[in-house]
Design a protein around this nucleic acid. Structure first.
Lengths: 242, 242
DNA sequence: CGTCGGGTTGATAACTTTCAAATTTCGTGG
DNA sequence: CCACGAAATTTGAAAGTTATCAACCCGACG
């Protein structure tokens, strides 16, 4: 069963998983749980948080500021870990919330530790996933610092496309996207009103369309050019041998 | 010797290091090297990069965009690792460059791996350091997305203060800072001209002064209030028991 | 002395936000 | 199936923030 999970698809793109690894993945996927939109999976300040692997749906992690604004750190897609670094390393300082209905498997800390002490390929893959997450955050940082709103949006949607493609949920044509313009605004560091204008401009330029919860890439290569998009940070050669 | 290195100071703030750990730190610090300002320690696309522990001086890591602008990811201070994640996890996609004259110890990958396979407290501490780096990047992201230029600058300098304080190079009074306004601009995602104005405003408000390569906190609590600065992401309880 | 890399200042242009309001979409109950 | 209200999207106009361009100043240094 685990063979076809989004996580397995993702990991298999970079490492050949052994039968044992698949067995361990299967064990993990036993504790499936469902959550409704808006559920807080982790909240700021919480200690001893759970880790999940997202199987279906969209999730976002964000920080709240005292002035009431929020900054979305990233959106988590099927196959991604939720709260991985927080549990491996430290208490959470950000929130994790379900956007859509989601299905996620709880990972026991003991299972994680087992994977690590056994030096399995799975452990390597997990570290790889964590590193990839970090690369995405860095790229996001670059976007906020040095890209215009238009480029930033284009880049962000292209990244979604690439990530979803990896787990079989999107293509160069486009993908389904349950985000509101408000959420995109909080992710891109813009006002929702400006997001609206940027989306219209991307549409007017014939590059991409975001309407009715669906993103359509109208001119993929044009979009890549505008955004200065380089996906080497997403689909590199996989983890080095540890 | 290693007992007094910046790294040991930093780590000791969070874990009690055993005699063995100190021995291992000592071993690491054997391979000291010096570099001049402007030296590229790691450049984009390079594989098989070295890891260093910075003992003295300032370093920055950044990404270049095709339009020529650059975004500084972070500045590395004494006691910090250079290129840690890149080597643990994947090939580097960013540059690392010395700002001042620096002194750094090269860490052999084999030493790192030894630390990990032995499940030593040192390994935990290294993961903790990596996690702290990530928390700083996230905080930086929040700053770029949802803080004004003034708050962003204030927050950034406060973070420097806290980090330097930890390794004995700064205090609530201030610290020496070799950065040009250009570099600060690339870090904060602003133009250097605007950085100049922001710095003047912080001075006029009586909050802090940055002149002659020295940052002085004129009104520490006022600055904290302006920046909405919460250092829990820097000096939390340390790594959980692994 | 003259150059060069910062730093500083002013004026203008560009981008983005904010406020206010109209329009559309969507879920739900009738 | 339709009507209704809430939420999301869209548009306009004005205000605010930041970038860009063009000078000028200054200390370090050959």
């Amino acid at each position: 069963m685990a063979e076809n999970s989004p996580l397995a698809r993702k990991l298999r793109a970079f490492v050949a998983l052994s039968a044992e690894d698949l067995l361990m993945l299967d064990a993990i996927h036993k504790r499936r749980r469902n959550f409704d939109p808006g559920t807080q999976l982790v909240h700021q300040g919480q200690t001893d948080q759970p880790v999940y692997i997202l199987a279906m749906g969209w999730v976002c992690s964000f920080k709240l500021l005292s002035n009431g604004s929020r900054q979305i750190i990233d959106f988590r897609l099927p196959g991604d870990f939720l709260g991985l670094r927080s549990v491996l390393f430290r208490a959470s300082d950000h929130n994790i919330e379900a956007i859509t209905k989601i299905e996620a498997s709880e990972v026991l800390q003991s299972d994680l530790l087992t994977a690590f002490t056994q030096q399995s390929r799975l452990a390597t893959a997990i570290l790889w996933a964590a590193s990839r997450d970090e690369a995405m955050v860095v790229e996001h940082l670059v976007g906020l610092g040095r890209r215009t709103a238009l480029q930033r949006a284009a880049h962000y949607f292209l990244e979604f496309g690439a990530r979803l493609n990896l787990v079989g949920l999107g293509s160069k044509t486009g993908f389904d996207c349950p985000l509101s313009q408000y959420m995109i605004a909080d992710a891109l560091g813009l006002s929702s009103i400006h997001v609206n204008r940027v989306l219209r401009e991307l549409r007017d330029l014939g590059l991409m369309t975001f309407q009715k919860r669906r993103v359509t890439f109208d001119d993929f290569s044009g979009l890549v050019a505008l955004a200065d998009f380089d996906w080497s940070y997403l689909d590199h050669d996989g983890p080095p041998p540890v």
